[in-house]
């Protein structure tokens, strides 16, 4: 469970990124965090594992106050929080396996990670996760040899290798095509369901958010302006987050995307049967 209270972040430049944001994410809930660019979505997510230092307010992860930890305890806390990044943020010149194993860095001493001799159960777990995300054949490839969708799957495996109690997901689909975006979102949500993981998914695509999240939180200029189930995200609510826009047309376009995808899958299945 994650609890955020009165979170405020003011950058050194004086920019106010977040103003007194507060909400609670119970176990197993997938939260879609939406808002225009510059609304503070990215800052909010990074405040949770303190990649960005909050200016004031508190964050609790299962009763542990994250905002009050020293360097060592912070590392302890970070290893319980998995994070998935926008541009995958894999270490490109390392192999897929090393990237997944890097999820265990908070658990193993330096010399073990330096000599790449991770405990047997960590390695078995990495193999299992790579199998789960469908990359069993790419274990020894270098990360920069993979396609965008595959890289994001490695990113997911790395986050899960940490045995996280919370997933932070920063724009997982920003650099992917519509079809791959759906697949990745589906995978993330499925995994959260399997493990009862709470997750905050920061996403600019409203339709994807509505389709996959249990709950939507809307940020506008660093303030929380919407919090509710996807069904309650009316045009009025969207306008309060994003400003005036033709939402009906946007939804229609997205619906067509989804239809096209379904059709393609149907075609593929037909082909399979024919073979």
């Amino acid at each position: 469970m994650l609890r955020i209270e009165q979170l405020t972040k003011i950058y050194k430049t004086g920019d106010r990124a977040l103003t007194e944001v507060g909400f609670t994410v119970p176990k197993g809930q997938v939260v879609g965090l939406i808002g225009p660019s510059g609304a503070g979505k990215s800052t909010l997510i990074r405040c949770v594992n303190r990649l960005v230092e909050p200016s004031s307010g508190q964050i609790f992860l299962n009763d542990l106050e994250v905002t009050d930890l020293g360097t060592f305890e912070l590392r302890r806390a970070r290893r319980r929080i998995g994070m998935i990044f926008q541009e995958y943020a894999l270490v490109e010149r390392l192999t897929v396996m090393e990237n997944v194993l890097s999820g265990r860095l908070g658990y193993v001493p330096f010399w073990r990670s330096f000599s790449r001799r991770f405990p047997a159960e960590d390695i078995a777990k990495a193999y299992r996760l790579l199998d789960r995300v469908g990359l069993s054949d790419h274990v020894d490839k270098r990360a920069d040899a993979l396609s965008g969708g595959q890289r994001q799957r490695v990113g997911i495996a790395r986050a899960l290798e940490q045995d996280p109690e919370l997933l932070l997901v920063d724009e997982p689909t920003a650099s992917l095509d519509p079809k791959t975006s759906r697949q990745i979102m589906r995978l993330i949500v499925e995994i959260c369901r399997e493990n009862e993981l709470p997750a905050i998914i920061n996403i600019h695509d409203v339709v994807l958010a509505q389709q996959f999240a249990d709950r939507i939180i809307g940020l506008q200029a660093g303030r929380l302006v919407f919090d509710g189930p996807p069904a309650h995200l009316t045009e009025a609510a969207l306008t309060s987050i994003y400003g005036e826009e033709d939402w009906a047309a946007m939804r229609k376009g997205a619906a067509e995307d989804a239809l096209a995808e379904e059709e393609m899958e149907r075609e593929a299945r037909k082909l399979m049967r024919a073979v």
């Binding site: 192999t95 396996m97 194993l101 159960e121 390695i123 078995a124 777990k125 990495a126 274990v139 020894d140």
Partner: peptide, 13 residues
């Protein structure tokens, strides 16, 4: 049981 079906050693190529 699930864990045991996967290899538990890995060497960097």
């Amino acid at each position: 049981a699930n864990l045991q079906t996967f290899p538990s050693t890995w060497k960097k190529p």
